[in-house]
Design a protein around this nucleic acid. Structure first.
Lengths: 221, 221
DNA sequence: GCATATTTGTCCGTATGTATA
DNA sequence: CTATACATACGGACAAATATG
């Protein structure tokens, strides 16, 4: 095609990942309509290929499809945030409650906490955010279910779309590093009930902050 | 196109639903390869349209995609059953534990139990199975999360694909009607912890039976 | 409220690379 | 190893629905 295409992965998979990243990064803003012809030209792919990508991301919740009108970047609402945090509470608190200390995902949790601290020291708030997401993905991995982990990845992508609207990433992630560390310490010590409770508090606090920030960002519904 | 097409829904949505039903009904058997050209002709749609449908059902877990080889009907394994039941335990037991008695989904649970009994009296085991699925979907609805309910619908479709391999639907569903009724009674009486425990027992027993039936059906992996 | 332009929905033909007989 | 079949991807076409003036 155009340039170096020695990639082994499918074209659709590559375009889907690229578009997903652009949406999460806020490059394409919520509510924006995505023209098939324009975007296909921008990605240098055919319309048919792009339409398959649209189907995938629509199922992920990142795009919304309106018949005969087109696809739009999903616009995060208070309702979707409430829903996403219900999912997180169910998955993360329960994964911790049923976990055991020697699980391989615990090592990933620890690595994420350490990287978050390192990024904080260098004021790399973007890095703190990524490490934070990895921590919580690792928590869900404690449940040892491929389907639950995949579902959580989807919901996490939607949540990052919400984050994208809010600037000031320091306030968004920094306060939670040590809460994660405390949860990790509980898990490593086998105090699963306490870890689960800590996660409930974490999620309640995080949800409140996101909702408040969203309300500030969009005064009128 | 061919016959009565006064449907308001999209062609892709209709084909997707049709194909999903055929897969769950066992009309297309697990492991079978689905030829793009042949299936497109059978549905009287173009290959492009069918490819978009394939993407959707692949994300649902009903189809498996192998690059440059085609799409195949997913073949249920013991691993996937274990995974699906992990998901069910997490979602259903927890939804019950956090439920409240006046929730609108409780009415749907009761309706499902009553219909299951009616179908049993008429020896309509297919109907018993459908009512059973509706009961458990209603349980997840107790959590009041659109995303959790959607995710559960996906996993339930995969589970029905597993059921499809096992004949003898009477043994598959009949013993569980009264277990569901007991769980419903607990919920209506506000005994949520007891309802949740009952569901754990239900799922453990159901999982064992499915695994045993699958082992009998496929002696060699 | 109407005529027009744009965009989506869907189909077809074709070229290319990959897997399999 | 060659040949065939098929998935992958492209571009053009047209109808239907929507948006625009």
């Amino acid at each position: 095609m155009s340039a170096a295409a020695i990639n082994t992965t499918s074209l659709i998979a590559r375009v889907a990942e690229d578009l997903r990243d652009r949406i999460i990064a806020g490059e394409l803003r919520p509510g924006e309509r995505l023209s098939e012809t324009a975007l296909a030209a921008s990605f240098d792919v055919s319309r048919n290929t792009l339409r398959e990508v649209f189907r995938l991301l629509t199922k992920d919740g990142l795009l919304r499809h309106e018949p005969h009108r087109g696809v739009f970047v999903s616009v995060p609402s208070a309702a979707s945030i409430l829903d996403i945090y219900r999912v997180r509470r169910m998955l993360e608190a329960q994964a911790l409650a049923r976990a055991y200390p020697g699980h391989p995902a615990v090592a990933r949790m620890r690595a994420a906490v350490e990287e978050a601290r390192a990024c904080r020291d260098e004021k790399d708030w973007q890095g703190v955010g990524s490490a934070n997401m990895r921590f919580h993905a690792a928590v869900v991995d404690l449940a040892d279910s491929q389907r639950l982990s995949g579902f959580y990845a989807q919901v996490a992508a939607e949540l990052r779309l919400c984050f994208g609207q809010l600037r000031d990433p320091e306030l968004l992630h920094a306060p939670y590093i040590e809460m994660n560390a405390a949860i990790l310490a509980d898990v490593e010590a086998g105090r699963m009930a306490q870890a689960s409770e800590g996660m409930e508090r974490y999620l309640q606090q995080s949800e409140r902050m996101i909702l408040a920030a969203l309300a500030r960002a969009t005064p009128n519904p």
